[in-house]
Design a protein around this nucleic acid. Sequence first.
DNA 1: TTCAAATTTGACCAAAAGTCAAGAAGAATG
DNA 2: CATTCTTCTTGACTTTTGGTCAAATTTGAA
Lengths: 197, 197
Amino acid sequence: MLHKQKRKTRRERLIEVGLDLFSRHSYDEVAIDDIAAAANISKGLLYYYFPTKHDFYLAVLRHSTSQLLELTEPDTSLEPLERLRVGLLAYFTFAEMHARTYVALLRGGVGVDPEVAAILNHVRQTYVERVLQGLPESERQLPALRLAITGWVGFVEALSLAWLEEHQLSKEQLAELAIRTLLATITSLHEQGSSSR
Amino acid sequence: MLHKQKRKTRRERLIEVGLDLFSRHSYDEVAIDDIAAAANISKGLLYYYFPTKHDFYLAVLRHSTSQLLELTEPDTSLEPLERLRVGLLAYFTFAEMHARTYVALLRGGVGVDPEVAAILNHVRQTYVERVLQGLPESERQLPALRLAITGWVGFVEALSLAWLEEHQLSKEQLAELAIRTLLATITSLHEQGSSSR
DNA sequence: TTCAAATTTGACCAAAAGTCAAGAAGAATG
DNA sequence: CATTCTTCTTGACTTTTGGTCAAATTTGAA
């Protein structure tokens, strides 16, 4: 039996507090006591909802990544290229609105922690998948297509992070740049005839 | 007076131990006592060489990033495109040889820790700078050139990380893909006439 | 040999993660 | 309403781990 009666469940409120703290401080700068204090709660209660500090962090991370994925959900009623453009705009909007959180999200992570890595990989994989969906059947057979798109997702991430520091371009221009780069990358896969396959 | 008599100074050996541990475990999975034990040393001695655990981590990180930058140092005797190709090959070679460390390096980091971020930014910035060096004067004036190249560096990082999981392409093919993408991205900046400047 | 500086230790301290018995608050039952 | 059962909440306690320090050991000039 899940319990989601009130406006916000305690668990949700705690995650919001964590979101705030973790976007402003590194993982081990944030003490359990800080979280408890910020939420007006005893330390023990935090452990009632989350088994360990690390699990709490994962919950916070999952929360924001799933929010990101939701807000950039592709609109399949649009044709692929337009769908991509809209998705990118939504992505940049998220980055802009939750700048601190977004940076912490991508550049954060707790060392080589496999669980954290898994969550971020899942996000990236999802984007790769979405891009693949928008490609015509004929293109999808290219040898290193998936690899190239994964690279492109990294391109978009780095682009957005750099953009946050200095908004020289509009979101529309960013999206255009990203799309052109994607198309060019895919095109270059065709030309790369040499030895693969 | 620096002291670098013997084969390897204690400090260097400690950094190597840290390199090993941090490439296999996350920052806070590695206890000071673990490091001391792995180096056959008392905990106190670690604090003789490094003020805090965090500083130790930074030293390890700086060590491997500077090693990466050294090994990929551009050979200015080559023409720009060839120089880039050789640089990329060296980069992928490093990633392959120090796979675990390399992954920890890029995807690691301690939360939003500004010092860690600064080190990684410095590496990325250096690459952006190197690419810019290889561009003809005429190209360097493009409005969002720096931004686009920063994105491309992210592309190369993501590409290499994905490649490490499944070596489907040769390093040469990877480099070719990366170069084509860079050129295409820059070209697309030209075409993006609209409203900037 | 001697002495001062550099190196190394291990016991100790402080802070932060994690545990738990017990109490308070709700909700269901009679 | 009383009672009882469940859920929620606390604060004191334990354990782990980062960090300190005086003292001991080693090194290397003089």
